[in-house]
């Protein structure tokens, strides 16, 4: 019962997860590597929405994008790790009550809930010289 309630609370952020996954799948590749941070802005957005919910996660993401400007130094900027373990993140990125996600299929099993694995190698000048 408590899990069902938790699931309902988690619905909005899962909507956000779906949108961000779609963005990362369809639109991100068009830009190539542009982000001055690691993890990239969209990965950071995904992680913070997963951990903090749609509203706070969304605000954190907006703040991150504003920071990701040509005058910033960039560098490593991780999402804060979760403070508790009431819910877990699946491989796809859904956030579900912990009891519903077997530990071995959870992304957390080696904790990469807060970052991505795709195309994360920033190699100079290939993508970036095209952008204006």
């Amino acid at each position: 019962m408590r899990d069902v309630a938790l699931f309902l609370i988690l619905v909005p952020r899962n909507v956000g997860v779906l949108v961000l996954r779609a963005y990362r799948k369809l639109i991100s590749p068009l830009y190539g590597d542009v982000c001055r941070y690691y993890p990239s802005c969209s990965a950071y957005g995904l992680g913070s929405v997963q951990q903090r919910g749609l509203v706070i996660g969304g605000i954190l993401t907006a703040w991150r994008i504003l920071r990701c400007n040509p005058w910033s130094a960039g560098g490593i900027d991780d999402v804060r790790p979760p403070a508790h373990h009431r819910y877990r993140v699946t491989r796809f990125g859904w956030v579900l009550p912990a009891a519903w996600v077997p530990f071995d299929t959870a992304a957390e099993s080696h904790d990469h809930s807060d970052h991505s694995h795709e195309a994360a190698v920033p190699v100079p000048s290939a993508a970036s010289s095209r952008k204006a």
Binding site: Y38, S40, I65, A120, V121, S128, K131
Partner: peptide, 24 residues
């Protein structure tokens, strides 16, 4: 991942980040 992290860290330390950033 570790490689990306180290690369990013290098860019930051040396102030040579070649990536164009997301905002524009």
């Amino acid at each position: 991942e570790a490689m990306s992290r180290e690369t990013m860290d290098l860019y930051k330390r040396t102030g040579t980040n070649p990536l164009s950033s997301c905002l524009p």
